[in-house]
């Protein structure tokens, strides 16, 4: 199955893209996807502990199972406001 991975701010700068298409085996969890992304982009590794995860615009736990077509967002610590 395929999912879309969205990256923002620091993560987008590190990876060099804001969106990646990622092919996974059925039953893959969000946490396993993140491990695969970190393995491909090791400069993200130091940021892993502060990463917030969202699927289809909702915050999820790493053990959430992904479905075909899901939009997975890897979110750095937010900093809205002035």
């Amino acid at each position: 199955m395929q999912v879309q991975v969205r990256l923002f701010a620091t993560y987008r700068e590190i990876v060099g893209a804001g969106q990646l298409a990622w092919t996974l085996r059925d039953g893959t969890t969000v946490g396993q996807l993140v491990e695969a992304v970190l393995a491909k982009y090791p400069r993200l590794v130091g940021h892993g502990n502060h990463m917030l995860l969202a699927v289809n615009h909702e915050v999820v736990r790493p053990d959430s199972v992904l479905m075909e077509g899901d939009e997975v967002a890897l979110l750095p610590p937010v900093s809205g406001g002035a």
């Binding site: 701010a9 700068e13 979110l75 750095p76 937010v78 900093s79 809205g80 406001g81």
Partner: peptide, 28 residues
Amino acid sequence: MDEVKRIVPIWKTEAGPRTPRSRRGRKV
């Protein structure tokens, strides 16, 4: 307002006099 700064997915970077447009500064 505290919640906006804590949970809403918005990020800011500083743009200063010596910041190149391609890399607009450190995270705030």
